[in-house]
Every structure is written in C-alpha cells, then in structure tokens.
Amino acid sequence: MISAKKIGLYFGTFNPIHVGHLIIANHLVENSDLDEIWLVVTPHNPHKKKKTLLEDHHRLAMVRIALEEYPKLKASNIEFDLPQPNYTTNTLAHLEEKYPEKIFSLIMGEDNLKSLHKWKNYEVILDRYSIYVYPRISEGTIETQFTDHPKITKVDAPIMELSSTFIRKGIQSGINIRPMLPHTVWKYLDEMNFYK
C-alpha cells in the first residue's frame, strides 16, 4: 500500500519569485515530513488591478523556470480558474476534489499566522489541515489559540527579509538585483523589460 503524498501549499503572488522563496520552500521540503511543495501562484483580483502586478502567466512562467532544478518543488496555477475573489478554503476544497489521493497542508509566514483568525472559515482550515509556519520579522502578536495548536508546526527556517517589492524598486532604480533572483528568472525579467 503506497502512503499518500504529503503536499505543502505555499501561496504567493511571486511578483517576482526570488531566492528567499526558494530558500524557504526548499528548507521546508528537506526538513519536514512533506514530500513536495507546490508554489501556488495567486491570480490578480480583477477588481483590484495592481499596476505593479505582472500578468498571471508571466508570474507562473517565472515560478516554473525557477523550480526546474528542484524536483520536490512544483509550480501550481490551480487558482487561475477559480471564481474571484477567491479564499484559501475554496482552493483547498477544490484541490481535495481534484487530488483525493494527496494530503494537503498550508505553509505560511509568522506574519500570516498573526492574522489567521481573520481568514474566512479559518476554524475549518485548522480542523482539517496542518499548517507549517516559518519565521518572519513582523509586528503584532500571535493569538493564544494558535500558540500551542496541535495542527500548527513552527519550522526553524532561515529568516528571509527579502521582498518582491524591494526587488521591483531596485529594478526601477537601475540597481543590480541579480543575486536576489534565480539566474533564469533574472534573464526572463531582463529580456521582457519587466518592472522598469
């Protein structure tokens, strides 16, 4: 009997994906019981068109090329076809239906855990899914209901203070940000003239 594959879901706009995302995802898949991590590219909300947000297919393409050398990390566009605005709870239900043989967990930064009590159906999510939390430097406190929760595992991952916003601003200012991106992603951005 083959045991079900454990999949960690790492959501983000990945605008663009950078080495910080890769370090966190790779650290988690190598130092936990997760078999794979899916980097789920969040589509832009049609009602909130952000000028700085690249088209969905470009962000997905960058995630795919960034993960080419990481067999345990996969790019996912599962949310692209879901009605907007979408909620994590809907995505999880959709994934369970599509992949009943897999066990899904959530991956989030400590900053997101601090606002988890504001998420739609967060009690249902906590009841049904494990959450892996990586450290982030952020304001605020974690709700006491989450501090010793049996479904929440704190992972001792490196603290990454690198952000996509910082990278986009750097590109606009003409600063060399190449070390912050996987080489293939930097090439893609440069050839497409993105964020300039």
Rank of each mutant, 00 (worst) to 15 (best):
F80D: 14
S164N: 08
N112E: 07
L54T: 01
D56E: 14
R128C: 13
I37C: 06
L82G: 09
E123W: 02
I125R: 03
S173M: 15
Y134D: 07
R168T: 06
N86S: 15
N26V: 04
E161W: 10
K72T: 11
Y134T: 11
D56G: 06
D190F: 05
P135Q: 07
W119F: 06
E161H: 13
H117W: 10
N112K: 05
V155N: 01
Q84C: 11
G170E: 07
Q172S: 11
Y129H: 05
L126H: 07
K114Y: 11
V185C: 03
R64G: 13
L34H: 02
E96G: 09
I137H: 10
Y134F: 15
L22D: 00
I24Q: 03
I152F: 11
E97H: 12
K51C: 04
W119D: 05
V155Y: 00
F166P: 01
S105M: 08
P135E: 10
A66R: 01
M1F: 14
L116A: 02
L162S: 08
T13G: 07
A4D: 09
Y195E: 02
I171P: 02
L39D: 12
D35Y: 02
V29H: 03
V124M: 10
E69R: 05
H94K: 12
P46N: 03
L189N: 06
P46F: 03
L162R: 09
D111R: 04
V29W: 01
M62Q: 01
I65M: 13
S130K: 13
I7T: 10
K98M: 11
F14S: 05
L162W: 09
I177L: 13
A25L: 09
E161K: 15
I24P: 04
P100S: 08
T89H: 08
K72Y: 10
Y188S: 03
T13S: 15
I37M: 02
L67T: 10
V40L: 14
T52Q: 15
Y195C: 03
I125P: 06
T42N: 15
I24C: 01
L189K: 04
G8D: 12
N15I: 00
P85I: 03
I167K: 03
E101N: 11
N193M: 08
Y87S: 12
I107W: 13
S130V: 00
A75F: 11
F166R: 14
N90T: 14
I23K: 15
I137F: 10
M108V: 05
P100E: 12
